[in-house]
Amino acid sequence: MATEILTLNNVTRIYGKEATQVNALTDVSLSITKGEFVSIVGPSGCGKSTLLNIMGALDQPTSGEVHFDGNSLDEMSRGELTDLRLQKFGFVFQAFNLLPVLTAAENVQFILQLLGFARYERQSRTREILDALGLVDVADRPATELSGGQQQRIAIARALVGEPALLFADEPSANLDSTATRELCELLQQINTDRGITVVTATHDPLVMGYTNRSIHLEDGRVVEDKSNP
């Protein structure tokens, strides 16, 4: 039996109060298995980001439970959730990903510094990952001088460098053209197959969905379809 790494049971997320409340997610139950490359798809406003944030321990459900590796996130303190994100998860966001005051390589090293690696270890690991993703050329460029595609690739390098169990990417290709989107998806696929890292990405782009081996369809905060892609 394949190992379930992340499990959601009857997760509901309601924003706001009373009159203005929005049911962003309603009664979502699903589990992610180790090694999967999953896409969460659906139109804008259907709850993809909300779901991803709850999975990534960035947000807490109004009701329902989330388990990572058999541990309930509900029972963890803020600090423990912060540590969990740092040590087990990698994040790639839609638009704003890099700290503008740092160079590309420093943005990658950032995670290793938070993790407390020594200088030499940080530098060699950073080199290694930039090398693997073909980003050595832009390593010393300020983050603000990178193209959109380069920024997203650096963000992926940063998400990977700490060797997380899970990588979350929320519409990583939203600001990219189709060529750059393809390159990005190939990269995610390569990470998934070569490094065995579980990848969960939200997208409304069928092109991205095509690369993944499972897609979960959301509509108005409910799972309407969950299927494997051959």
Binding site: V101, L102, F117, A118, R119
Partner: peptide, 21 residues
């Protein structure tokens, strides 16, 4: 292998100095 304090201090210092600059 892990020198947690010094690596965090150098991060904080670098971020502070560059944000000031």
């Amino acid at each position: 292998m892990k020198q947690s304090l010094s690596s965090r201090v150098s991060l904080i210092y670098a971020l502070s100095v560059r944000n000031l600059w």
